[in-house]
Structure formats: structure tokens, C-alpha cells
């Protein structure tokens, strides 16, 4: 979706302000939100792209005025409801009003936490030939799906060069919709800054994105 989350190249947000000696969490509730999301994902309640989509779907004014973990909380509430795992009246009541439903992999036990601390593998066996190879010129398609996608707006329609080929990976656009993994070839495509930002761009700058094959066409 062409959402507020797709921020690459926007102006006006001001300087980056690093915080010296930043704590891991700024309040205990932030840790609870992160841990709940990880535990629910591990239990099979949802996948990472559904989780991303739930945040991208927040109204832009809410997205921009909420802290990072507040966005996670709001997204998670909506996602739990959308997945039929929690009802709105329960969120309002602050307690369960109905029994839970079975989760695909079951509740994550404390002894199994180590497994969620290592990233899952998103690579899948390759069952098609790659359409592109390193060095190929490709154009990022001018697509605007209303649903979750990982092709940022600032590269759409632009021509770049394939720099890395990562094999086949789970395709976010379908897995976010619970329509299966639909593995696709994944490439790192690098763009000259002038191709992205025009003649005034920094001539020393090149920017890459990781792009799935359906996002690309020969150029």
C-alpha cells in the first residue's frame, strides 16, 4: 500500500537525533509489547508480514504521532482482532470474555524462548530459473498494490542493476494476506542517486533495495 510507513526520500522530518546511552526499552511496557508480538508470532498466531501490515494500516496521523512500540501495540490489537483471536469487547474490558482458540504451533514455553531469538529462515528451495542475473539492468515496476508490499515508492519506475541474487524467499505480498509463501527470487538492485533523485542528487551516492522478482522487469 502507498502508506505513510514508506518514508524513503520524504523531506521535512528534521534532523536525526541520536540518544546517548539509550536504554533497550524506555519503559517496561515497551518490552512487554515486543515480547508479546514475538511470542504470538512463534505460536503461529500470525507471520512477520501480517504484523508489518497491521502497523502500515494504522491511520497516517496515528502512525506519525505514536512511538514505535505504541505502533506495535495498536497494530497487534488490530491484528489479534482481525485474526479472530481476540474480540473488541475483550480489549475494552481488559480481560478475556471467551476461551482462546488453538494456535498453529501452540503457546511458546519459557524453555523454548531461545528459538525465537534467532531469526527464522525465509529462503526456500528454488523451483524456477531466475529471470535475472548479476549485472542485468532492471526496472522496478510501477505498481501500487493496495495491500502489503516491500517495494518502496522511491524506486518504482526507476532503472537499476542487479548486484546480488539471494535465491528464492517467502513473498511478503502474499504471505501478509495469508495466501501462502509463494516463494520468489530475491535480488539486491542498486540505483544511481541521480536515477532516483534527479540531477541535483549526490553524485557519489548509490542506493540498493532488496526486490522480489515480481517487482522487476527487464530494462
Amino acid at each position: 500500500m502507498d502508506g505513510i510507513h514508506d518514508m524513503g526520500g520524504m523531506d521535512g522530518f528534521g534532523p536525526v537525533v541520536p540518544e546517548p546511552n539509550e536504554p533497550v526499552f524506555h519503559a517496561p511496557w515497551e518490552g512487554r509489547v515486543l515480547a508479546m508480538n514475538r511470542a504470538m508470532g512463534a505460536a503461529g498466531a500470525w507471520n512477520i508480514d501480517m504484523s508489518r501490515a497491521s502497523r502500515e494500516n494504522l491511520p497516517p496521523e496515528v502512525y506519525l504521532t505514536s512511538s514505535y512500540y505504541k505502533r506495535w501495540l495498536l497494530g497487534m490489537e488490530n491484528l489479534a482482532v482481525a485474526r479472530g483471536l481476540v474480540d473488541r469487547d475483550e480489549l475494552a474490558a481488559g480481560r478475556a470474555l471467551r476461551p482462546g482458540k488453538p494456535l498453529k504451533r501452540g503457546r511458546l514455553a519459557p524453555a523454548d524462548v531461545a528459538r525465537v531469538l534467532v531469526r527464522g529462515a525465509f529462503g526456500r528451495p528454488t523451483n524456477t530459473a531466475a529471470k535475472f542475473k548479476i549485472g542485468d539492468r532492471v526496472r522496478a515496476r510501477n505498481i501500487h498494490p493496495r495491500t502489503h508490499t516491500r517495494l518502496p515508492r522511491y524506486v518504482r519506475g526507476r532503472v537499476g542493476v542487479v548486484e546480488l541474487v539471494h535465491g528464492c524467499h517467502v513473498f511478503p505480498d502474499t504471505v501478509a494476506l495469508d495466501q501462502g509463501e509463494n516463494p520468489q527470487w530475491l535480488y539486491t538492485v542498486v540505483f544511481e542517486a541521480r536515477e532516483l533523485w534527479g540531477d541535483d542528487a549526490d553524485p557519489t551516492l548509490r542506493v540498493s533495495v532488496d526486490a522480489f522478482e515480481p517487482y522487476l522487469e527487464p530494462a
Binding site: 511496557w29 511470542a39 501495540l73 480489549l91 480481560r95 482462546g100 511458546l108
Partner: peptide
Amino acid sequence: VRALETILTEKGYVD
């Protein structure tokens, strides 16, 4: 956040 954790815990989704 506590409300959500209570709900998810009572429904057996998280420990």
C-alpha cells in the same frame, strides 16, 4: 498493554 497481556494470557496464547 497490561490489558492485552491479561487477555492473551487468559486465552492461553502467551505465558
